[in-house]
Simulated scan of single mutants.
Amino acid sequence: MGTFLGHLVPGLAFTFIGLWHTLNTIKTYKLKGPSNFTSTTWFPFPTPISYLKHLELYLLFSFSILAMAVQILDYPLLTMSFKPDNYEHATMFLHLAIYACVAIAVDLSPSSNSLASLVGALAATVFAQELFMLHFHSADHVGLEGHYHWLLQFIVAATFVATIAATGLPKSFIVAVVRSASVLLQGCWFIVMGFALWFPRLIPKGCYSAEGGGVHSAVACENEEASRRAMALSNLQFSWMVAFVSTLVAYLCLRLDWTCMEYRQLESPSGDVPPFPSEREGLKQVHVSV
């Protein structure tokens, strides 16, 4: 994953699924209302074809297997050198594949409702082990790259906590939308890292690409002043990205309009409460008897 595409492709995947979850979380809340809302770790694909219902989980599983294969095949099997970081990256995707498989199996089982918390717990383990691998990474990222990874740990930690909270508080819309937004933010930050660290024209002033130079960082800086300036820029990028995702989620919450089922049942098109069928029949009978 220590390449431009190694961050861009997973970043696009996280961004897509985070946006998909954010939209569906808001839609579900506005359609069902506060009392009937229940958060979930995945959303069925809207299609009349039944076997495409789990398309989100199928794509997650396929992407995870492909990413694992790329990481493992990159390891030189015919040499004696060992690259543990490849296996660390592959292990991150392994947990994602396990979650997708179990989520499909639980949904197809007769006791899917009682096992929903199991799926939530497995979703939490995906981000728990991602945080673990990032914190104890064998590559030991230093310098500017290490600072970007340190900021990434904040996002992953927030996603992990929100996923745990959503499992325990499935009725909370705020927890559910924070979890979805944090996944979106994680994807956006992966993309920012790819461009900032591996796109030569976007490397901060006073820094240069250090690949192949024996340094455990994608970018090295000429002096301490250049390093501080580059890290300050990354902090600004992080704050701007949080502001962007927060504004986007707030906009979606305010602008997306679906009629709540609770109010649809109570209100007529004119805004008045229509009489129940039994009441209408009673009035009709009274009129006839008179």
Rank of each mutant, 00 (worst) to 15 (best):
M1C: 03
G2F: 10
T3R: 03
F4N: 01
L5D: 03
L5T: 09
V9P: 01
V9Y: 02
F16G: 11
N24P: 03
N24E: 12
N24F: 07
N24L: 07
I26G: 00
K30Y: 05
G33W: 03
S35W: 03
N36V: 00
F37K: 00
F37Y: 12
T38S: 15
T40R: 12
P44R: 13
P46R: 10
P46Y: 06
P46M: 14
T47W: 12
P48N: 10
Y58T: 11
Y58E: 07
L60Q: 13
A67S: 15
M68C: 05
A69K: 05
I72L: 13
L73Q: 14
Y75N: 01
P76H: 10
L77G: 12
T79C: 03
M80P: 04
S81K: 10
F82Q: 06
F82E: 11
P84K: 03
L94Y: 12
H95D: 02
A97Q: 11
I98V: 15
V102E: 05
V102H: 00
A105Q: 13
L108P: 01
L108I: 04
L115G: 04
S117T: 10
S117D: 10
A123L: 02
A124R: 02
V126N: 08
A128R: 00
Q129I: 05
Q129G: 00
Q129R: 00
F132S: 11
F136Y: 14
S138R: 07
G146Q: 13
L152V: 02
F154H: 14
I155K: 03
T159E: 08
F160G: 04
T167R: 12
I174L: 08
I174A: 09
S182E: 14
F190I: 09
I191S: 05
G194A: 04
G194N: 00
L197T: 01
I203W: 02
K205L: 00
G206I: 03
G206W: 03
C207K: 06
A210L: 07
E211D: 06
A220C: 09
C221L: 10
E222K: 12
E224W: 02
S227I: 04
S227E: 12
R229N: 08
M231D: 11
S239E: 08
W240Q: 14
V245Q: 06
Y251G: 02
Y251E: 00
L254R: 08
L256N: 06
D257I: 00
W258G: 02
T259G: 02
Y263A: 12
Y263W: 10
L266E: 07
L266T: 07
P269C: 10
P269M: 07
G271Q: 13
G271F: 05
V273Y: 11
R280A: 15
R280D: 06
K284I: 00
Q285K: 06
